[in-house]
Nucleic acid binder design. Structure first.
Lengths: 205, 205
DNA sequence: TATTATACTGTATATTTTTACAGTATATAA
DNA sequence: TTATATACTGTAAAAATATACAGTATAATA
């Protein structure tokens, strides 16, 4: 994503603030009024630059036809865009920007429980549970899990998706593939962090 | 807060859906297009009623100057609640109300292609493709399919989901389970209707 | 030094859009 | 039966708005 100039950032912020305040984007004239421009073409020129750099899209010929594509402050976007976590870089939080490979427009309430992100499945360890490589598993961030849940656990700074079983200090992370072994963790000697549990999955055909 | 009529609810939902999709509210003409009105004054009349009842506010004289004051949350929204088709009654259209067992809040754009409804998988005929019983397969209504697509076909008034293969007048509907047989149809003697193709699936855990 | 990019002002035209007025039809309430 | 509310169609005018063209000034880059 290309860098914005100082004025372009101001224009983008103006659009975002106006949209949050009113529920609809500003016109060129309104941007002028907010930023002290005397000419609507000043606004038009900046908007075109923002469009070119991928921060907004413009529905040509439509009044107020400005959509925020990339906000410069947070990931707050119009409608729910759930992050898809691919490879998790060592030492980084799961939802760090660098781990998000894309976003998918969908409703966090589409499964029986709400969820926070998708985790992209790598490998075949869960295939006998009908979870294939590249499936996107919907994860709800929680540590409140029980035996039998499909959970996301961070172990030695690696993130893994397995069935959860815990008795006293013994944690077992159980795959669903007879060719894989259960991971056994003695919590007296090793740390493991439950980051969330699965509430569903999606797969593109 | 006053009760809305059925049409007023539809108009409000239309505004909300449009706003979520595009980032800006619709014009009167766009509301007409979505809801099948022929006159912009129909939209205007409903918007004024919604304003009067406190659901929206209108910035007079501004294009798209509609702000949502009170969202209707439990109301069915256009485009956001995808129907789940369970058993299809003989002789009825797939999307007949009687075949819809529930609706799921989700974005029709969450897969690589948009889709129209979910079809609930019955049986194990596709399990080797990772499609399990009770999975919800996202179906795009189309007859434009090619060999290898996973399609919904109506055959002798039964709806089935299989891989598609056609050569001349020979249609093969191929399962993904070695315990099931390919269905072969001679289109000179028997009718089969392609209703749609799969673009993805979801599964609740 | 020349060229390009950025950041405007100014103006104008075409199109979009709002909104008002007039009408019909149906349903509901008094 | 009458009045009111709801739900439109149809039309039109005024205002809003996008966007293109022409120009100037300054900064950055080659």
């Amino acid at each position: 994503m290309k860098e914005l100039t100082k004025q372009q950032s101001k224009v983008l912020a103006c659009v975002e603030v106006y949209l949050n305040k009113t529920g609809f984007p500003p016109t060129r004239a309104e941007i002028c009024k907010e930023l002290g421009f005397k000419s609507p073409n000043a606004a038009e020129m900046h908007l075109r630059a923002l469009e070119k750099k991928g921060y907004i899209s413009i529905q040509s010929g439509s009044s107020r036809g400005i959509s925020i594509v990339k906000s410069q402050q947070s990931f707050e976007q119009i409608g729910d865009q759930m992050p898809v976590i691919g490879l998790v870089a060592a030492g980084s939080p799961t939802l760090a920007e660098e781990n998000i490979e894309k976003r998918i427009p969908c409703d966090p309430n589409m499964f029986s429980d709400t969820f926070d992100y998708f985790l992209k499945v790598k490998g075949l360890s869960m295939i006998e549970a009908g979870i294939h490589e590249d499936d996107l598993v919907a994860i709800k961030k929680t540590t409140d899990v029980k035996n039998g849940d499909l959970v996301v656990v961070r172990l030695e700074d690696e993130v893994t998706l397995k069935y959860f079983k815990k008795a006293d200090h013994n944690l077992e992370l159980i795959p669903a593939n007879k060719d894989f072994s259960t991971i056994k963790v003695d919590l007296r000697e090793q740390e493991a962090f439950v980051e969330g549990k699965s509430v569903g999955l999606i797969r593109t055909h």
